[in-house]
Simulated scan of single mutants.
Amino acid sequence: MATSNDIKNGSVLNLDGNLWTIIDFQHVKPGKGGAFVRTKMKNVMTGKTVDKTFNAGTKVEFETVDRRDMQYLYSDGTGYVFMDPNTFDQVTVSEAVMGDATDYLLESEKATIGSHNGNPIFLELPASVVLEVTYTEPGLQGDRSSGGTKPATLETGKEIQVPLFLEQGTRVKVNTSSGDYLGRVTD
């Protein structure tokens, strides 16, 4: 069994029957007292993030998670079907595992799927995606890029805030973790 000294970013731990992914860690050796490992962990199933501190040398149970880059194909009503572009294997991911990823995912987009014992347990999207604005109110004469914002609906149905000057049909870059507008994309 491994110890807390082996913790790295991306490691998956089994704590009390729940799987947790290490988002960030820091080994701390204070001048007085014993060393410890400070971590920020994300529950693989619920997405809840917590901070936890382990004493140095504490025994922890690591889990093996298979991470594969896959391509989104379609939604079949019961889940979302992804395909491995190398082996053409298909995997169905449940809506619970998908979470908010459906707001940013178009057909043939790539995503990383993590599986444990053959079951998909999490999905990682790229840091940003490019989507088209399908509806937004028209901007007014004199609107500037440093002005306010207005709501815009993307092709996936997600609504975000965009600058006043953007028009319907514009392609925009969107942060997948926060849903923030990052800029226009010109092809």
Rank of each mutant, 00 (worst) to 15 (best):
A152C: 05
K158G: 02
T53L: 12
E63V: 12
S145G: 13
G31E: 09
L19I: 04
G79H: 02
T39G: 11
V91M: 10
K40F: 15
D69G: 14
D69E: 13
L166D: 15
L125C: 04
D100M: 07
Q161T: 05
V162F: 06
E107V: 00
R67Q: 10
V162M: 01
P30M: 04
I160K: 11
E132A: 06
G99Q: 13
G10Y: 11
H27K: 14
F122V: 00
D76Y: 00
L154D: 01
T53Q: 15
L73T: 00
T186K: 09
I113G: 00
N175V: 04
K48V: 11
Y74Q: 02
T149A: 14
V97A: 02
V174L: 11
I121M: 03
T46K: 13
N86D: 15
V12D: 10
T134D: 06
S115Y: 04
T170S: 13
G10K: 09
I113W: 05
K110N: 05
S146T: 14
D51T: 15
N117F: 14
K150W: 11
V50S: 14
R184L: 11
T64L: 09
D187H: 05
Y104K: 03
T64S: 12
G142L: 10
R68I: 04
D84T: 00
Y80S: 00
L131E: 10
G34M: 05
H116S: 03
Y181C: 07
L131H: 05
T39K: 04
N5R: 12
V93I: 07
Y135L: 15
W20L: 00
L73C: 00
E124S: 07
S11Q: 07
G147D: 12
D103T: 06
M98G: 03
S11K: 10
N175D: 13
Q161L: 15
E159F: 06
K29T: 12
S4M: 08
P30K: 07
T78R: 03
T3N: 12
F25W: 14
E95K: 01
D51Q: 15
G79F: 01
A96F: 06
E159P: 06
E167G: 10
Y181G: 10
K32T: 12
D89N: 09
V162W: 01
S146R: 07
S4A: 04
T39A: 11
Q141G: 04
T153A: 08
S146W: 12
A35Q: 07
E61W: 15
T170Q: 09
G114E: 10
L15M: 15
T134G: 07
N86K: 07
T153C: 08
T176M: 02
V130G: 12
R67A: 08
A2R: 11
F54W: 14
M83T: 00
Q26I: 06
K150R: 03
D84W: 09
L182H: 05
S145C: 12
T39P: 05
N86F: 14
Y135N: 13
M83L: 05
D16F: 11
G148D: 02
P120G: 01
E159W: 01
Q161Y: 10
T21Q: 14
E132G: 09
A56V: 02
E63P: 06
R144G: 10
Y135P: 03
T136F: 06
L106S: 14
D51H: 11
V97K: 02
A2E: 09
D143C: 04
F122H: 01
Q141V: 13
V133D: 03
M1S: 08
F62I: 15
